[in-house]
Design a protein around this nucleic acid. Structure first.
Length: 276
DNA sequence: AGTAAACTCCGGAAGC
DNA sequence: TGCTTCCGGAGTTTAC
């Protein structure tokens, strides 16, 4: 499941291969994966050149010459790859972009279709492009911004998972960052001490950065014995470790449902707030 | 108004 | 082998 680190890895790969390519043709397998700018994407984008590939939160942003942009969200099961046009199409490949004079193409596949594509032209309203409501990027989050984000009475886990508040944190790294900062996921966001906010900002950045570094190994086509890409094998602190020993104190990691999500934490290191 | 929880989309994977 | 159940990012709806 792609989280910010995997998205960043994909972006880095694409940024090395796509800029400069001129779009020759856009092949759409399913209309409904394009949430806005359908005509722009399949017709007017033809002839445009790819200027850059970047990332905002967990969204991939492909900038075209002329100011249009294509936004791709991978959701749970999305993959964005560059493959030879002769290679067999994987099932659930919904979008392909071909380029002038090139024998490879950009492919978007997404079996569960939790992901999607938005396209907008220069000057188009930001609404509906999948970017307009995103909060500040988690990878670059800084204390003053985080303090502002946390100024509401809501479970910290729910706030961190809300892409409008802060963008880029998914379930795995949310749990990881909270454990690293020794904060219980149920803690009301506005009750964090300045010290805790400092620790949390640090934890969010360092957790994501470490995962990106680990993901770098998949850039070199690294796979472990099980075929898993590099970043997935980073040793998680709590995620997926229910019942196992906390790496800090040895207590058994607990799993429960918080903010509608499976949540892992250490009951000893992450003290539950006193309920009022 | 702000927050919380339920519901929805979908198919892979795990469990029986 | 074949069925059922679980899972989840995020938008929407409903309820406190």
């Amino acid at each position: 499941m792609p989280e910010l680190p995997e998205v960043q890895t994909v972006v880095t790969q694409l940024a090395g291969r796509l800029p400069g390519a001129t779009i020759a043709r856009v092949l759409l397998g399913r209309r409904d994966i394009v949430h806005s700018g359908h005509r722009l994407l399949t017709r007017e984008a033809v002839g445009a050149k790819i200027a850059s590939v970047g990332r905002v939160g967990k969204r991939i942003v492909i900038q075209l010459s002329g100011g249009a942009e294509i936004v791709v969200h991978l959701g749970m099961s999305g993959r964005l790859t560059v493959e030879p046009i002769d290679d067999a199409l994987a099932p659930h490949t919904h979008l392909r972009v071909r380029f002038v004079g090139r024998m490879d193409e950009l492919r978007f596949r997404d079996p569960r279709r939790f992901g999607g594509v938005w396209c907008r032209g220069r000057g188009d309203d930001a609404n509906g492009n999948g970017l307009s409501v995103l909060g500040p990027d988690a990878l670059a989050i800084r204390v003053p911004v985080l303090r502002q984000v946390l100024s509401r009475r809501r479970q910290i886990k729910a706030v961190l998972m809300d892409q409008r508040m802060i963008s880029g944190l998914g379930n795995i790294y949310c749990d990881e960052a909270l454990h690293k900062a020794a904060i219980h996921p149920l803690t009301p966001a506005d009750s964090l001490t300045p010290k805790q906010i400092n620790r949390l900002a640090c934890s969010i950045r360092s957790t994501l950065q470490a995962a990106i570094r680990a993901g770098g190994s998949s850039l070199r086509d690294y796979r472990d014995a099980n075929g898993e890409p590099g970043w997935f094998q980073v040793s998680h602190r709590v995620y997926g470790r229910e019942g196992e020993a906390c790496r800090s104190c040895g207590s058994a990691i607990v799993r429960s449902q918080i903010a509608g999500r499976s949540t892992h934490y250490c009951p000893a290191c992450q003290k539950e707030p006193v309920t009022t």
